[in-house]
Design a protein around this nucleic acid. Sequence first.
DNA 1: GCCACTACAAACCGGTCGGTATGTATGGTG
DNA 2: CACCATACATACCGACCGGTTTGTAGTGGC
Lengths: 215, 215
Amino acid sequence: MAPQVARRRTRAPDATRERLLRAAFEEIHRHGFQAASLDAILARAGVTKGALYHHFADKAALGHAMLDEVVTGLLLQRWLGRLQQSEADPLTTLQGIFRERAERLTPQEVELGCPLNNLAQEMSPLDEQFRGRINGTFDTWTEAFARALERGQANGSVRRDLDARRVAAFLVAAIEGSIGLAKSAKSAPMLRSNLEMLAVFLESLRPASAMGKLQ
Amino acid sequence: MAPQVARRRTRAPDATRERLLRAAFEEIHRHGFQAASLDAILARAGVTKGALYHHFADKAALGHAMLDEVVTGLLLQRWLGRLQQSEADPLTTLQGIFRERAERLTPQEVELGCPLNNLAQEMSPLDEQFRGRINGTFDTWTEAFARALERGQANGSVRRDLDARRVAAFLVAAIEGSIGLAKSAKSAPMLRSNLEMLAVFLESLRPASAMGKLQ
DNA sequence: GCCACTACAAACCGGTCGGTATGTATGGTG
DNA sequence: CACCATACATACCGACCGGTTTGTAGTGGC
């Protein structure tokens, strides 16, 4: 019943799966999860529905795998890649990260926004599985910032009267909000300005004794 | 061909239109614009497709009208209602607004997030008409904050080395990011914490000469 | 070199979507 | 009171959606 006339390439299941994940990422990044069409994803990946449903149970499973295997890694690499191995004090390191992100903005980042936050805003009220995974990544991110701040508190480079966890959560929220507003305004300068404001804000987290040499 | 058996109530075109706008607002707030079903909106409004397409050209027109006539007003009322008539200095007024919002959080606000930002994140890359309207509202909001800060700069209650417009844009972005992250975390305390952090941040915008009496 | 199983390809399906065609009840106007 | 534009209600449509079924080509193990 299936004519089977078309190309049949050499088999490469892992590569096929990754092509699907990447195509799903790109389609979903632009259209959102619900509005992303499987046919569009398949066309972009260059495979057929048979391949998709061989590798994934349904559209939701594709979305979950895409989150776990594409989005989370990308985000954590972008925003806390240099956080662990940096030898500077945590605030300087964070400022460096923010300013590096501001410099390296791609047009896609401004136009489409943060893939994690996009999914969060779309899916959180609709699907607990999505919300749980997304929130887990936000939590990892926040925890990493918080631990960096705590290290700074331990060695005296960060004010000790702060709740590191709450400051970290604020930073993540401000980053995502800045990306989102810049996307709505289609303005890379707006995003750069907000990231710079965050870097300046970080300066206010240094102990008073350290303020002198910086002003 | 149309049996016309059902109830036909008294005519009230304005009320019907408003019922449609309100139903659209609620469905879209939860599901997003693209995923919001016209049938669900009609069921919620208690009218039929004939009524909808009598009042609006298509789904997009309904969305645009809903933005202009429901969302924008709601947002500006929430976030800059008391900004004009307050007699306190602008920073204190803004702190009051943030803390009042933190106290008056409804479960719906935390679960569903900001309707304007939801639409912004979903529709900005897909539809210039949506993006333009949404961005206009963000702009009005930012401008109102900026003008309040400028008034403070004029009367000496706000530092003059700040770019009021950029600070205002940062505030709006941080607010939206905070709402978005709290929605993902399903956490009203997180939103309250972030709004409080913003209020504290505002304190740092006072001139140095005014710092003494506050610390 | 055959075989069993994996990794797909292609056709197909019911359901839902936004949108339209058509008809009619309502209520102001002459 | 006749008329007619307005304000709907209902039935219907093609397109597309996610998902399933069916068939088969590639491929490692023996």
